[in-house]
């Protein structure tokens, strides 16, 4: 039997390294499932899962949907627009309505930090955080960790640098927790205006220039720069951002070792990352996507409610064993 993850997956900050490794190890066999001609296993047959997305997201939602369907679960997608949320229904009421419909699991993306934990405390269904405000995006960090592990054979001792808008990035926060717990060294690189206060107190190295980050890192995880950051005045223009912090082949050539390139997607080609780098030999961006489905299957599988008391009853009655 494996160790338990609890009822919800809200973030990586409070998971133990063992729990994180459990998820990564469980993801491996699920990768194989996605290679089969019939990409379906009955493990979550009959479970109802709601994908509750208060923020637009195509790729994360689709990834979860594939994961759910490949586990034979029944899925329902709820998007914020057109649902009762846009009419002003509170998060609490949405939660209660879902529970009243006897949903087994909820995968939620919400613009407010803390929303996933908030929901998890109020409903019995399992809650999986698909991104809450700027707080965490645990499945993204988990698939990032799996991708790094696949490529480098380990995570401990590796130097991983997150590049870009760390201040507003839940992917960065989750990665920070996951990488630190598994023994990697974490760096961040970007304009000061996009760095969170106190980040160095969390044991993270700060590089003001991308050239310094490239000299240090084994892996670069390049974060998406959003247009709003320019509109809100954090940086003067996307052009300048690319000129100063863009990950380009010319800059990478200067590095003393080959650097694995990652990106959570969707990419702004020519803003945070050059196309030649994204499509280059050291890019594992597409592996991240493949691993995403496997990691999400692993998380759903591990969280899906068993009822241990039935197991005890079964053991007492039938004399146990499925041989």
């Amino acid at each position: 039997m494996t160790a338990s993850l609890g009822k919800d997956l809200v973030g990586l900050e409070h998971l133990t390294p063992e729990q994180i490794r459990l998820i990564l190890d469980t993801a491996e066999p699920f990768k194989e499932v996605s290679e089969r001609p019939i990409k379906k296993v009955p493990a979550l047959r009959g479970k109802t899962i709601v994908n509750l997305f208060f923020e637009a997201s195509t790729r994360t939602r689709i990834s979860f949907e594939f994961a759910e369907k490949r586990l034979s679960a029944d899925t329902v997608n709820v998007a914020a627009s057109g649902s009762s949320v846009s009419k002003g229904e509170t998060l609490v009421d949405t939660a209660k309505n879902l529970e009243a419909m006897r949903i087994d699991m909820v995968v939620m993306r919400h613009p407010s930090s803390g929303a996933a934990g908030f929901l998890g405390q109020r409903i019995r269904s399992n809650v999986i955080n698909a991104g809450d405000g700027k707080h965490e995006h645990p499945t993204q960090a988990l698939l990032d960790l799996l991708t790094i592990r696949d490529k480098h054979g380990k995570i401990e001792g590796l130097k991983v640098c997150l590049v870009g808008d760390v201040l507003h990035s839940r992917v960065a926060r989750s990665n920070l927790w996951g990488l630190t717990k598994l023994g990697a060294q974490v760096g961040v690189c970007g304009p000061h205006t996009l760095m969170p206060r106190g980040i160095e107190e969390l044991g993270v190295k700060f590089f003001p220039r991308i050239e310094e980050a490239i000299e240090w890192a084994d892996v670069l995880n390049v974060l998406r720069l959003q247009l709003e950051r320019m509109e809100m005045g954090f940086i003067p223009s996307l052009r300048e951002y690319y000129r100063v912090w863009g990950v380009t082949p010319e800059r990478l050539e200067r590095s003393p070792r080959p650097i694995t390139i990652m990106h959570p997607g969707p990419m702004n080609r020519g803003v945070e990352i050059d196309s030649r780098v994204a499509d280059g030999p050291h890019s594992v961006i597409l592996d991240q996507v493949t691993n995403g489905v496997a990691v999400r299957m692993a998380v759903l599988y591990l969280l899906a409610g068993g009822r241990p008391e039935l197991a005890d009853a079964a053991k007492r009655g039938a004399g146990g064993g499925t041989e």
């Binding site: 494996t2 499932v33 296993v41 009955p42 599988y301 899906a304 068993g306 009822r307 197991a311 499925t322």
Partner: peptide
Amino acid sequence: LYRDDLETVGPKPVI
């Protein structure tokens, strides 16, 4: 993943 008793176990079996 094809077991008929996944519902009744607590922590999940290793795959």
